[in-house]
Each structure stands twice: as C-alpha cells, then as structure tokens.
Design a protein around this nucleic acid. Structure first.
Length: 563
DNA sequence: GCCGTTTTCGGCCCGACTGTTTTCAGTCG
C-alpha cells in the first residue's frame, strides 16, 4: 500500500509550489489529490494496474501520469523539479502559525532563512522585523507560533476533548443560554482534535464571552471580544467560543463544523444555483433565505442533512441521501472487558450490573491468557473457574454474559490456549501484546485463520498519544478477516481507537464484520464505547456491519455458523 | 492541475482579522 507515500509527495509538491509562488489553483489541486489518496480505501497500485487512476476524484491526466511514473520508476520528475533549491527544513516552516508562503519567501530570499535556527536568529537580531510589510507585531506572532510549533504537535484524543468540551458547555449554559454545541473536528468525531470549537446562540455576545473566559481552569485568555473568545486552559488545550445571533445558528454550526473541503464543495454547489453561503446564512442576492437551522442549509441546496461524521468530502455530498449509520443507541453489548480475574479492577458481578444499567443485553468477559504475566493472565484452571462464575452471575444478574478470553497471539502465530479450552468458550478474541522489530503480518494472519478465533482485538496496536503500533500490513489482515469471517475490533479506548476510521472503512468494503469494544479495566471505561461509535460512523458503518447491534440470539447463531 | 445541467475553456468558497498601510496584502479557519 503506497497511498500515503504518494500523498506525502503531493503534499510536498504543493508546499514547494506555494513557496515558489505558483498558481494557487494548481497548488490546491495537488493538495486535494494528496488528501484523496490518504483517505482512499482502495490500494493505489491496484487501481494503477487496472488503469483506473483518473477515476479517483481530484486525479486527472496530469497527476495520473505522475503517479504512473512514480510507481513505474520510483521517481517523479515533477517532484524533483519542485523541490529544486528547497529543503524539507524550509518547507516545515510553512506550518508555523503566522508564517505563510509570502513571508517565508521574502525571509528566505533576502535573509537566507532556510531552517528553524535561521528563523530564530533573524527574529532575535531584528532583521525579520525590518523587512517590507513586516513589523514588530507580526514578528511577535511568528515568534509565538514558533514556540507552539516547537512544542511538538499537540492534538488531543477525542476521548479527552469531548468530555472537556461538555464540561465547558455546561459552564457556558450557566450564563443562561440554550443553544450551545460543539463544532469543528470535535463534532465530526475525528480521532484527534486540534482546538476545541464551541458555538453558542445569543444576542448577548460580550457577556457570554466574558463568562466563558472565567472558566475555572483558564490559564491564559487569548482573545475576548463581542463574538469570539479564545482561552488556553491549565491542561494546555485551546478552546474557542463563537457567539452568533439565534437566526444564524444553523448556518454557523454548519460552517464551523466543516470540514473545509466539505464546505468548499457546498459553496460551489450554491454558486451553481446562484446562491451564496456564509456563516450567516444562504443568500440570494441580498436576501437571506436560510440560516436558523442546519437542515435548511442542506435542503436549500437540494441535499439531505449529512451527519457531521461524514463531512469530509469523501463522496457524502454526491450520495444525495444520508447513508444509514450505526448509532450509539443501537449498541446492545460490549465484547471486550477485563475483570479482576486478570488486570481489571471490578468483579464479574459488578461489571454485569453496570452493563445492565447501561441498557446492554449482553457482554463478554475476556480476561488475559496465561502468557500475559504482566496482566495477571489466566491459566486453563483459573479460566475454567471464571467460566463457572460467569454462569452463576449470568443467572443472578439477568444479563447474557459470553464466556470469553483475550488470548495472546504468540510469536509464532500460535495461541496461548489450546483448542480444548477454546472450543468450550463462547467467544475468543485474539490479540498481540508484544512489539518486536519483526513484521507481525504472518503471525496475525495465522491467528486470524484459526477457526476458534472470532475476532482480532486492537488489530494494529497503536496508541494515539505514544506509539505507532506493531509492524503489520493491515490490509492483508482485513482481507483475511473478511475471507475467514473473523471480526475486527474497533477498540474504543480513547487512546487506541484501533482500527482507525480509514481502516474500518476498508474493512467494511472488504466485507469484514466489526465489533466495538470498550477494553474496559474499570466500570468508567465501559462508557468509552461512544468514541468507537464515532469512529464507526466516520467509517460509514451501518448497523449490519457492527456485531454489537445484533441481539444475543443473533450473535449466538453468528458465532456458531462462522466456524 | 481539475473539471463540466453556464463543458474542452475559464472558472476554481468566503469572510474575518491583523498589521501594515493610507487602500490592502497576507494569513487563517
């Protein structure tokens, strides 16, 4: 899979051309192609071999030819040409807030700035401020931007951002406003969030913003005006609040939810109809014809309302109607929970009662297997004991509990338990818990092909905040899962969200079933399911793709039939 | 460089804000 590799090349070409002052639309074309490639569920090499490159949106004759050249020869003339006299260190500087292509160009040409160090130097010695069009304040902004830039990229997991946003929304509501909502990538349920965007309807902007900036954990107030406030809280996250009049709320919500490519496409549709969209509404000439409700924005353009999770310009607009997506209310159970038999903190009974309180029809208890020493993994004897306890609790609490295990996949692809005990369990999820340098694709494929394995847990092993995951060709795993009718897990723990939305969408297209699992080690973690639902929706999964929407009886027959 | 109920050329989303200017360019979302 070389999609990302090609996407990165086109991103660099875009940056390089921007630096060189090339036509903006050409630059946008490369970036659009890059983005499409990143999101593409098909393998670019397959499309290439089939001669279907130009069927990819944003890929025309020109870019197709460049992809062809690159896949054929490993090189791309256009890339070399664009990068002539330009280093990656230099292009990196374009990511600094306040530093655009024009500013970088002039700093490079007149002061020889081509790296972060150079930039720091010309800020310090005042030469940057002396350039035409520059001044002290601009330099100060770039300096601040450089500080943020240096502090590593800081995106927050949705699992941290969403509860935080809800806390802030509660605070804003105390100022006596009704309509307050998250916007931006948070509302689109992206896996990670840059800044937290919140939108509010009121005619008392200044007053609301004032109240907002008095939030308990404010560290610094960045901006405080009549319509917009911006704070940084103690944890280091930026939160922006915008206040608009009630009659603009829908338009503003649509606008600030984005994504940018989605909005661009909507606006071009509006333009074709002789309309104009802004965050204040849809206008025909000077007449506002929509804006209070978000649905109006879409319906005025002749479209059905589109769920925020889909708004990425990945075909959701052309579709004409919203696809049926799995919803949090559809979730009837949880497939991956640890009890105090291994490394969880709660008893099976506590878990069962809590699950019942969540409205679940069933859960699976899946403690670690014996090799997972660090997690107090169960040997066969303890697992048998646990199975008996599960049966008792099931009777007592009155919720279906599947007797399960999260069995370790060992280095040679064999499982940590033998068939004798696996066949006595209701559900077996298998997982890798090691991080060797070697590629684990074959190891996972072997486990996936084992008829006793019903699902592969956290298939790539990534942790959003701190590790990439093991070396694995996830597309091969997806294909294998589809062909062996083995489910793939979306692990809903906020720092995993593994599968990612892109991989989950690939899984759907391959026909693999998906399970959502909290991987809970305590009761609170069981509520993390909603983050995984976000991933599933972003992956366009419908109810029939997700086993958690099945009834207990349907599941039992699925588990029986798949072997 | 892409693309097509204004089609194979001539368009390509829109507005706010900022800081530098003295009417606007650059940057951002």
């Amino acid at each position: 899979m070389r999609n990302r590799e090609l996407a990165n090349i086109f991103i660099k070409i875009g940056d390089a051309l921007e630096f060189k002052g090339e036509m903006p639309f050409k630059i946008a074309a490369y970036r659009k192609a890059a983005r499409t490639l990143e999101d593409l569920t098909e393998d670019i090499e397959v499309l290439w071999k089939d001669g279907k490159l130009t069927s990819i949106p944003g890929v025309g004759k020109g870019i197709a030819k460049k992809i062809d050249e690159y896949l054929e020869t490993g090189e791309m003339k256009k890339y070399k040409e664009a990068m002539e006299g330009i280093s990656s260190d230099l292009l990196e500087l374009l990511n600094i807030q306040g530093m655009g292509p024009k500013t970088l160009r002039i700093a490079h040409d007149t002061l020889g700035v081509s790296s972060r160090k150079d930039l720091e130097k010309v800020i310090k010695d005042g030469s940057l401020a002396s350039l035409p069009g520059m001044g002290e304040k601009k330099v100060e902004n770039i300096k601040k931007g450089l500080e943020v830039f240096s502090a590593e990229e800081k995106r927050i997991s949705i699992g941290i951002a969403l509860p935080l946003a809800e806390e802030v929304i509660d605070w804003i509501k105390q100022a006596g406003v009704e309509r307050v909502a998250p916007a931006g990538s948070l509302r689109r349920m992206r896996e990670t969030i840059g800044d937290i965007d919140i939108l509010c309807a009121s005619n008392r902007g200044g007053e609301i913003i004032d109240h907002f900036t008095n939030f308990a954990r404010v560290e610094r107030i960045l901006a405080k005006g009549e319509t917009k406030g911006s704070i940084i809280i103690k944890e280091g996250y930026q939160i922006d609040l915008r206040v608009v009049p009630e009659e603009c709320f829908g338009a503003a919500l649509q606008y600030f939810t984005g994504s940018k490519p989605h909005n661009i496409k909507l606006r071009s549709i509006a333009r074709q109809k002789g309309l104009k969209i802004s965050e204040y509404g849809i206008f025909k000439g000077n007449n506002k014809i929509a804006g209070r409700e978000e649905e109006e924005i879409y319906s005025t353009l002749g479209l059905a309302w589109i769920p925020p999770e889909l708004r990425e310009d990945r075909g959701e607009i052309e579709l004409g109607k919203a696809p049926e997506l799995v919803d949090y209310d559809d979730i009837r159970g949880d497939f991956h929970i640890h009890s105090n038999y291994s490394d969880g903190v709660n008893s099976i009974k506590e878990i069962a009662e809590f699950a019942k309180g969540l409205g679940y029809e069933y859960i699976a208890i899946t403690d670690h297997s014996k090799s997972a020493k660090y997690a107090n993994g169960l040997d066969e004897k303890r697992l048998r004991k646990e199975m008996r306890e599960i049966e008792r609790v099931q009777e007592e609490v009155g919720i279906r509990i599947f007797r399960g295990t999260e069995v370790d996949i060992l280095r040679d692809g064999s499982l940590d338990f033998d068939d004798n005990i696996l066949q006595d369990l209701d559900i077996v999820i298998a997982a890798v818990h090691m991080f060797p340098k070697q590629d684990l694709t074959d190891v996972i494929l072997k486990a996936c092909s084992n008829p006793h394995v019903d699902a592969i847990a956290h298939p790539t092993g990534r942790l959003i905040s701190r590790r990439q995951g093991y070396k694995v060709n996830i597309n091969e795993v997806i294909e294998c899962a589809a062909s062996t009718n083995t489910a793939l897990e979306i692990n809903c723990y906020y720092d995993r969200l593994d599968l990612s939305d892109v991989n989950a969408r690939r899984a759907k297209q391959s026909g693999a079933k998906i399970i959502l699992s909290s991987d809970a080690h305590n009761l609170g973690m069981m509520k993390g399911m909603r983050f995984g639902v976000g991933v599933a929706r972003r992956a366009w999964l419908s109810r029939s793709d997700v086993l958690n929407t099945f009834s207990a009886a349907q599941l039992e027959s699925w588990l029986k039939e798949r072997v």
